[in-house]
Each structure stands twice: as structure tokens, then as C-alpha cells.
Amino acid sequence: MSEEEAATGLRWNNNVSVAAIALISYEYLILLDKEVEYVWKRPWSFMSCLYLVVRYFGLFLAMVCACWGGLMYIPESVSYDLIVLIEWGFSVYFCFAEVILIWRLYAICNQSKLVLHVLVGLFVPIVALSIGTDVYLYSRPSVFSVQEVMTPNAKYCTLYFKIGPMLAIYTSIPIMCFDILLVIIAAFTLVKHVIEQRRIKMRPNTYMVMIVRYHIVYFALNLTNQILLVILWADIPTPAMSLAELFNGTAPFILAPRLIISIWDTHANEECVHVSTTFADCLCWTSPPDFEQHEMNPCVEHPESTFSADKEVVEV
């Protein structure tokens, strides 16, 4: 690498680092008041614990990614351990994000134990594959190296992969297939729900539509993330590499907690006369237009609804 290329790479890294820190900090601050209201001031639950994991573990990973490489000088000996931590951290974060999607599918599928067991059974091999991939690709010094680059005005560390991107491509295929399955189940559940609601002349449930939409958005995000992770293994121009790293280092950590907060916030602001449980599966339904008495109480529980009232409430 020439001195000019090293200086250009350092400038790109610093600019991307500043942008990542600004985005993550801004996102954290604008959601802090809602987090205090919906998490810290309420009894903790399984979903609130998942929120705290994706919120603060994601914040930690995003800041480490932003600081490594140039914005803050980190010695070469420490940099290798940080890269391993970052790559393993991305995998752990992915697993928690997938658990959130599985839990929401379990909720909107009428708390079907079959759906839960099938998804968990398919997810366990995905976790094992992710662990094996991280061990093989990121835990062996023979696969990649961290080198210190010195310029007249600064010095920083960068990494070089010693193998091609094909293994990363192959190992990402099962992950994408699993995400496709989650989207298909969510879409099928929504279609079934819409048909049932039209039969009884009621609008689709707001939360059902929202959760399915988030599944699709997350699938698109994860697909883009997996493609960019593979691209980072290839020898691509510095600007493209930096922009890909900016996306991978911010988008997953912004979207996951925001999706949880959005559902909670929608539930809290819904104009419902009766809400049985805080953050519960939605029991609020739009009233049939022909019944005036329902207009006085727009939130009713219907026995044919996907969210059965006689079942244990699952927080989404």
C-alpha cells in the first residue's frame, strides 16, 4: 500500500467513524425518553430484556467499530483481539435479533407451540453454523491479519483477509433461507388474518400488520447486511469498503431497538377503552361499521381473532 493510499484510507475511515458515532448517538438520544417510559419505569419482561440486550450491546459494538482503525489509535496487538470481539459480537447480536422475530411470530400465530418448536429447532443449527463460522474465519490468525499502517502524520491499524469470500457466501445461505422462512410465515399469517377480518367486516389488527411489516424490513436489512459482509472479504475500492462498513456498523443496531419501541409506543398511544395488559398482544379491534354500540367502545375481543383472549398473553 502506497503512502497516498494509506492516507486516503485513513481519511475515509475517520469520516465514516464520525458519521457512525453521530448516527448511533442521535438514535440513542431520541429514543431515550421512550426507553425510560416503557422499560425502566415498568416491570421487566422477556421482551424488555431482549430490548436492553440489542440496545446496549448494539451500542457497545457500534462504538467499538467506529473507534477502531483510525479515529482512535489502538495498538496492533490489541486490534486483533478487538476484531475477533467485533465479529463474534455481530453473530451474538444477530442471534438475539432473530429470537425477537421468532417470539413475535409465536405471538401472532396464536401462540402456536408447533410454530415455536419448529422455528427454534431450525434456529439451533443456524446458531451452531454461526459459531463454527466465527471459529474458522475469525478466531485463527492464519485467516486474517491486522497490520499497522504508518503515514507521516498518523498511524492506524487495518486488517487483511488471506482467503477468498466463498466460505462466507456459503455459510450465509442457510441464514438467508431461515429469514425467508420467517417472512413467509409472517406473510401467510397476515393474509389469513385479513381474510378472517373481512369475513366479520372488521379491519386488520394494527399490530399484526406492523409486526409483519417489520419482518419484511428486517429481512431486507439482513439480506443487505449479509451481502455487504461478503463484499468486505473481497478487494474493493476504499470508498465502497468504508460505506459498507458504515451500513453494517449502524443499521442493525438502529433498527432492532427501534422496532421494539415502535410497537410499544403504538400500543401505549392507541385510543382504546380497554387494554388488558401492558405491551400485550393486541386485543384492540376496529369496530364493525354497522354497530353503533361498538363505536362507543372500539376495543373489543373477538373469539375468531388471531390473538385469542383465553390464552396467556405474550408480550410483543
Rank of each mutant, 00 (worst) to 15 (best):
Leu52Thr: 13
Ala22Leu: 09
Arg258Phe: 09
Lys311Phe: 07
Ile83Pro: 06
Cys65Ile: 10
Asn222Asp: 07
Ile180Phe: 13
Tyr170Gln: 08
Ala240Pro: 00
Trp88Pro: 00
Pro43Lys: 15
Gln111Tyr: 10
Leu190Ile: 05
Val16Lys: 05
Met150Lys: 15
Val217Ser: 10
Cys67Lys: 01
Met47Lys: 11
Glu35Val: 01
His193Glu: 11
Gly164Cys: 10
Ser91Ala: 14
Val64Gly: 01
Met296Leu: 06
Val313Phe: 15
Asp134Ala: 13
Glu148Tyr: 13
Ser48Met: 06
Tyr160Ala: 10
Val275Ile: 07
Ala6Cys: 06
Ser142Cys: 12
Asp134Val: 07
Ile24Leu: 08
Arg104Ser: 01
Ala244Cys: 09
Met202His: 03
Met208Trp: 03
Lys311Trp: 12
Thr238Cys: 03
Ile236Cys: 13
Pro75Tyr: 08
Gly164Glu: 07
Asn248Cys: 15
Ser91Asn: 13
Tyr207Ala: 08
Gln111Asp: 07
Glu301Tyr: 03
Leu59Lys: 04
Ile21Asp: 01
Ala220Thr: 04
Asp33Lys: 15
Met63Leu: 11
Asn153Lys: 13
Trp103Asp: 07
Asn13Lys: 00
Ala7Thr: 10
Ser112Ile: 03
Arg11Cys: 07
Lys155Cys: 07
Ile211Trp: 13
Val84Cys: 14
Asp179Leu: 02
Gly164Val: 01
Arg55His: 11
Ile231Cys: 04
Ser139His: 15
Arg199Ser: 14
Ile184Leu: 10
Cys95Met: 05
Ser79Tyr: 03
Val16Cys: 04
Val316Tyr: 07
Pro252Phe: 02
Thr8Asn: 15
Leu29Ala: 12
Pro289Thr: 06
Gln197Phe: 12
Phe219Asp: 01
Val314Lys: 12
